[in-house]
Design a protein around this nucleic acid. Structure first.
Lengths: 145, 145
DNA sequence: TCAATAAAGGACTTTATTGTCTTTTATTAA
DNA sequence: TTAATAAAAGACAATAAAGTCCTTTATTGA
């Protein structure tokens, strides 16, 4: 019943942390990110790498390098990170594990879970990283405790 | 983003299958249950054992033995099975993994996830095994495909 | 009482997830 | 052009979840 995998948790927190930086081109290194979101350094490196490959963040090698947001583009939402890490299918698999669960041959929970998933998708799709990072900066919410 | 663990999936399906039996005292063996819900036999045995220990179903050893529902009591809901298998905490852990996430020191998704979880809890708490098993018997929904 | 049956219980294996470590590649600045 | 730096990449290790197998215990009916 965990909402996100550990990988996804760290990914969300890492991206949020990057967005709390006022300068979208400020390069932040893995050690700092891992320290600030309290995540394992090497594992975080892998996740940042994937986020970068998926185009959600950018990276620069060499001295002064690190990860950064890059130029302003359309908003990023929590859902985008989840999709990038866990894949889009993860929000559509049958809750009872049926291979071919569908509205025409539904599992006992099909329609209810459908509604539920829709609600989750709406929620995650409405949570913009920009807004959340502002709340972090104003100490309304916290990335660690 | 899986709603249930595999253990929980099988547990729900096993209990649903038992409820499709008109006779609440008809003893059903592990092989039949596993076959009918398409689950691994030995693993299913463990799960049925746990469900029995938790008092959600009953069991009888020896010839003619098996698992059964037992006497009518207050309705069982999907939520009861989830709680019995995954524990009640599983619906309350912080989505971003913060140890002490709370309304006074919330993670960036705290309140939104709270609403979401409430919706899920309501849903799972409103799905009664009796009603779902009736839908299975009338071929409105299916346990396997 | 005894043999057969079926769940209970425990040790074990497999697989997926999480996490670590080391080497390579790209970049920077001296 | 070279030394230092930092991410990329890939192999490896630890842990947890899923699944198997074997022995024990309880029950039944002959």
């Amino acid at each position: 019943m965990e909402i996100f995998s550990k990988t996804c948790e760290y990914a969300i927190k890492a991206v949020l942390y990057l967005y709390t930086k006022q300068d979208r081109f400020a390069k932040i290194g893995i050690p700092e990110i891992a320290r600030e979101i309290k995540s394992p350094v090497s594992f975080t490196a892998k996740i940042l790498q994937k986020l970068s490959q998926r185009g959600l963040i950018r990276s620069a090698k060499g001295p002064g390098g690190g990860f950064y947001i890059g130029r302003k583009r359309k908003s990023i939402f929590i859902l985008d990170i989840v999709n990038a890490i866990d894949g889009k299918e993860s929000l559509n698999t049958c809750a009872l594990g049926l291979k071919n669960c569908s509205s025409s041959r539904p599992c006992p929970m099909h329609f209810e879970i459908l509604d539920c998933r829709k609600a989750i998708r709406n929620l995650l799709g409405s949570q913009s990283i920009e807004e959340l990072s502002k709340k972090i900066l104003s100490n309304e919410v916290y990335l660690v405790n």
